[in-house]
C-alpha cells in the first residue's frame, strides 16, 4: 500500500510537468505562428514579437519547478524515496493539480492573448508594450496556482 502512495506522488509530479508543459507548448507554438506571419512581411519586428512568444513559456517552467520540488520532497531526487502512506501520496498528487490544470489552460489562453498582441505589434509597433501587458495579465493565475502547489508540497507532513 505504501508504494501506491509514492506512485501517486510521482504521478502528481508527472502531471505538473506534463500538463503545464503542454499548455506552454501550445501557447508558444501559437504565438510562434503569428510571429512568423509578421516576420515574413517585416523581418525588422523579430525582436519585438520574440518577447511575446516567450510569455506563454513560463507555465512549462512552473510545472518543471513544481515537479522538481515534489521529487526532492519525496526523496526521488537525492536521499532516496520516502515511505509515503496512500493519504500522503494522494495529498502530493492533489498538490500538483493547481499548476497542472491552471498551467495547461493559462498557457493556451496566454498564447492566444500574446498572438493577438503580435497583431498589435505588426500594425502599431509603438504599442507593443500594451500587447505584452495584456498577455502578461494571464500569468497572474499561473503564478497563483504555482504558489498554492508549492505551499501544499512544503506543508504535507511526512
Amino acid at each position: 500500500m505504501n508504494s501506491l502512495g509514492l506512485a501517486f506522488a510521482v504521478f502528481g509530479a508527472v502531471c505538473a510537468a506534463l500538463f503545464a508543459g503542454i499548455g506552454s507548448a501550445k501557447g508558444v507554438g501559437l504565438v510562434g505562428e503569428a510571429a512568423a506571419g509578421v516576420v515574413s512581411v517585416d523581418p525588422s519586428k523579430f525582436s519585438k514579437v520574440l518577447i511575446l512568444q516567450l510569455l506563454p513559456g513560463t507555465q512549462g517552467l512552473y510545472g518543471l519547478l513544481t515537479a522538481i520540488l515534489m521529487m526532492s520532497r519525496i526523496g526521488i531526487i537525492g536521499s532516496g524515496a520516502a515511505d509515503l502512506t496512500l493519504t500522503q501520496g494522494l495529498m502530493f498528487f492533489a498538490a500538483a493539480l493547481p499548476i497542472a490544470i491552471v498551467g495547461l489552460f493559462s498557457g493556451i489562453a496566454q498564447g492566444r492573448a500574446a498572438a493577438a498582441g503580435v497583431g498589435i505589434t505588426a500594425k502599431k509597433p509603438d504599442q507593443n508594450g500594451k500587447g505584452i501587458i495584456m498577455a502578461a495579465m494571464v500569468e497572474t493565475y499561473a503564478i497563483l496556482a504555482l504558489l498554492v502547489s508549492i505551499l501544499l508540497i512544503y506543508n504535507i507532513q511526512l
Binding site: 509578421v38 492566444r112 498572438a115 505588426a122 500594425k123
Partner: peptide, 15 residues
C-alpha cells in the same frame, strides 16, 4: 487559431 500566422501577416501589411 489556424489563422494566427495569416492574421498577423495581414496586420503587418495593413500598416
Amino acid at each position: 487559431t489556424e489563422y494566427a500566422s495569416a492574421v498577423a501577416a495581414v496586420r503587418a501589411m495593413e500598416s
